[in-house]
């Protein structure tokens, strides 16, 4: 859960528009990135549009038709032990995964980016913040989630907070490294000579240039958070039933695996597609943002 993305090299602010054009062009020329982007588009749309796409409510039980095979009329992906429609539950589960993913990325960005900027800029703060980040890295995220669940008793918020906090230290490190590098560039020195204050330099010169590193790190956090949510919910520490979650579906399905494996197959495929999409797209984005690669 603590992967750190490689930092793309700098993109001067002055020709941001041209850079954007080059990034988009490079992305469009990367077949793996396109596959990843298309995958993401499909699963994100499916999750967002779940209330309109799902044929049933994800919690609606049909006691007369449990364990239907995929392809049954009315239940495209079959039903589970309570006769709930697997397709509807998968759609809503993907939606919940994205909610947790987005919330934890936001938490990591909101806390990690300012701390990274400040600790990279002011040396005296650096020792304190870096120690803090080390300490946070010493707590495995699952232990953190266990502690939070002991206090709050699980839930979507618990999962998002635990996963967000777990990803703050790596975000701090990425932004700090960028700030350290940008602090000595000519355009920041020029801003200094023009009497720009620290906040102005950080906000107008360093942050926009660190943005690509932040975005790349966010594409690393998202799939980790989606996987993390599934793990936490699978263990009973995340989203609580009857709310559908891909992790809960897998945990339920394991109970009657020997009767029918299908309810365990589909949630896993969806998690894999989401993560594959983010991994492929994130890799392509990192290459595209790096001026040293390609044309």
């Amino acid at each position: 859960m603590t992967a750190i993305a490689e930092t793309p090299a700098e993109t001067p602010v002055a020709n941001l528009g041209r850079v954007r054009g080059r990034v988009v062009r490079k992305l469009l020329h990367n077949p793996m990135g396109l596959v990843g982007g298309a995958l993401l588009l499909i699963v994100i749309l499916a999750g967002v549009l779940a209330p309109w796409l799902a044929p049933y409510s994800p919690t609606e039980v049909h006691f007369s038709t449990p364990f239907q095979q995929p392809g049954t009329v009315g239940f495209a992906l079959g039903t589970d032990d309570l006769g709930r429609d697997v397709l509807s539950r998968v759609l809503y589960g993907a939606r919940a995964s994205f909610e947790v993913g987005v919330l934890s990325v936001l938490l990591a960005v909101v806390v990690g980016v300012p701390l990274g900027l400040l600790s990279g800029y002011w040396h005296w703060l650096d020792t304190l913040v870096s120690r803090l980040a080390d300490l946070m890295l010493a707590f495995p995220f699952l232990i953190l989630a266990v502690g939070l669940a002991a206090i709050n008793g699980g839930g979507l918020g618990n999962a998002a907070i635990a996963l967000g906090i777990a990803n703050i230290p790596t975000m701090i490190r990425v932004v700090r490294a960028e700030t350290l590098r940008l602090k000595d560039t000519d355009f920041v020195l020029a801003a200094h000579t023009m009497d720009a204050g620290a906040w102005r330099i950080l906000g107008q010169h360093i942050l926009p240039n660190a943005l690509s590193a932040i975005i790349v790190q966010a594409t690393v956090i998202m799939p980790a958070a989606v996987l993390g949510e599934a793990v936490l919910s699978f263990l009973g520490l995340g989203i609580q039933p009857p709310k559908p979650s891909l992790g809960i579906m897998l945990s339920d399905a394991q109970q009657y695996l020997f009767r029918t494996p299908w309810p365990a197959v589909f949630p896993g495929i969806v998690i894999a597609l989401i993560c594959l999409g983010f991994n492929l797209f994130g890799d392509a984005l990192r290459d595209a943002l790096d001026p040293k690669t390609g044309k």
């Binding site: 799939p223 699978f234 897998l250 896993g268 894999a272 993560c275 991994n279």
Partner: peptide, 9 residues
């Protein structure tokens, strides 16, 4: 990309 515990199941 594939969740470990799913592979386990």
């Amino acid at each position: 990309s594939v969740p470990t515990f799913w592979v386990g199941i």
